[in-house]
Design a protein around this nucleic acid. Structure first.
Lengths: 198, 198
DNA sequence: TAAAATAATAGACAGTGTTCAATTTTATCG
DNA sequence: CGATAAAATTGAACACTGTCTATTATTTTA
C-alpha cells in the first residue's frame, strides 16, 4: 500500500504522538504498548516503526510533548499569579505531576540506552522549563546574587523534584509525611533568602 | 520432583534473591528477567514463581536487600567519619548511587501495582535509612529545634534525592551542572542553619 | 503509460511474565 | 521395609511484548 490520501506524513506522526500520549496517560509507562497505539489509530505496527524507527524514539517524542504541556501549565499559572510567584511555581510543579501522574513519571521512567541520543530540538523544548524557573529565581534574588541564578535554579528544581517524586511514589506516605508541598516550599524559601535580616 | 537434598526453602529463597540482585546490578531494571535468574541458579521458572508468587514480590525482596546494603554503606562511612558528619551523609548517599546505579535506580523504577502491598518487615528495613539521617540531623540541630528533626530529615532526604537522581539520569549534565554533590550539600547546609549569626 | 519511489502491511522471531497439570522427590507412618 | 501422603519441581502453553523484513499497494515522476 502507499500513502493514504487523507494523511500526510507529518499528520501521521502527530496522530501517533497524540494517541501514544493518551495511552501513556491511561496505562502508565510499564504497560505502554506500541502495538496498542497502532491498533487504536487504525494502522499496523510496521507503520509505527517506519515513522519512529524504535520505541525509544517514540517515547522520546511523547515525553517531549509532556514537557511542553508542563511548561504551558506553569506559564498559565504564572500569568494569573498573585504576588507570590515562587509559591505559584512550586505549586505548579506539584499540580501538574499530581494531575498527570503517569505522564509525569514516564519522563523519568524512560531511561534511554547509551547509543540513543536525544534530538537537539527535543532538548530545547525540555530546557524551557528550567528557563522559566531561572527567570523567576533571578527576579527574586538580590541584585548582587543574580549571577548565581541559573545554578541556584537548577538546584531548586532538583529540590522540588525530590519532594514531588517522594509525594507521588509513596515514600513520603511511608515516612508519615502528609504535606510534601509545604515542605518543598519551605526549603526553596530558605535558599532564596539565606540570611534573615536581624 | 521434590525437595532437593542440598537446599532448604529458606536457602533457595536466599539464592534467588542473591542471583536476582547480581542480575539487576548487571543489566538494570528494564532488562531484568526472572527466567534468566532461574536459569543461572539451575532451577526452572516455575520454582521461582512457587517461591515468590509474582515478579513484583521478587523485585521487592531484591530492592529491600539494596536498602540494607545502602544503610550499611552509610553506617560504615559515619563510623570512620571526621567531624563533618552531614557531609559524610550526603557523600554516602551519592557514592552508593554512583557505585550501584542499576540497583539504586531500580528502587525507584519499581512501581508496584495498587493491589500489591509491601510486607511490613520490608518497610522496617527501608525505614532504617531515614532513621540514620534523622539521628544525625537531630544531633546537629539546636536543642530548641530538635523536635522538628524527623520532618526536616525527611525533607533533606528528598532534597538530596532530587539532586542525586538528576545527577544519575543526565538531567544535570543537560543543564550544564558539573557538581551536583556540592549543590546538594549547599542546600542541606542552608536548611540546617537557617539564620546565620550576625 | 512505464518505472521509480514511497507507504503500509502482517507474519516471523525471540523474548517476556504467568499459570498449572503432571511428575519426581522427600517425609511419614504402619 | 514399603505404601502413602505431602511437598517441591518441572516445562509446556498462553498471551503478550519490541523488532525486523519481505511483500504488496499506492503515488509520483519520467
Amino acid at each position: 500500500m502507499g500513502r493514504r490520501s487523507d494523511h500526510s506524513r507529518a499528520e501521521l506522526e502527530r496522530m501517533i504522538i497524540l494517541e501514544g500520549h493518551r495511552q501513556l496517560a491511561e496505562v502508565g509507562f510499564s504497560r505502554f504498548s506500541a502495538r496498542e497505539v497502532a491498533k487504536r489509530i487504525g494502522y499496523s505496527i510496521g507503520t509505527l516503526y517506519n515513522v519512529f524507527g524504535t520505541l525509544d524514539r517514540l517515547i522520546l517524542a511523547i515525553n517531549t510533548r509532556t514537557f511542553q504541556l508542563w511548561a504551558d501549565h506553569l506559564r498559565a499559572r504564572l500569568d494569573s499569579a498573585d504576588g507570590d510567584r515562587i509559591r505559584t511555581l512550586v505549586e505548579g510543579y506539584f499540580s501538574f505531576a499530581r494531575e498527570n501522574p503517569n505522564l509525569w513519571m514516564a519522563i523519568y521512567d524512560h531511561r534511554l540506552p547509551p547509543d540513543v541520543t536525544i534530538p537537539p530540538e527535543y532538548e530545547e523544548e525540555r530546557a524551557e522549563l528550567t528557563e522559566i524557573v531561572t527567570r523567576e529565581v533571578a527576579a527574586v534574588l538580590p541584585a548582587a546574587a543574580r549571577a548565581h541564578a541559573p545554578r541556584l535554579a537548577r538546584s531548586l528544581v532538583a529540590t522540588v523534584h525530590g519532594h514531588c517524586i517522594f509525594a507521588l511514589n509513596g515514600t513520603f506516605a511511608l515516612m508519615g509525611e502528609s504535606n510534601p508541598l509545604e515542605l518543598a516550599l519551605a526549603r526553596v524559601r530558605e535558599s532564596l533568602m539565606p540570611s534573615e535580616p536581624c
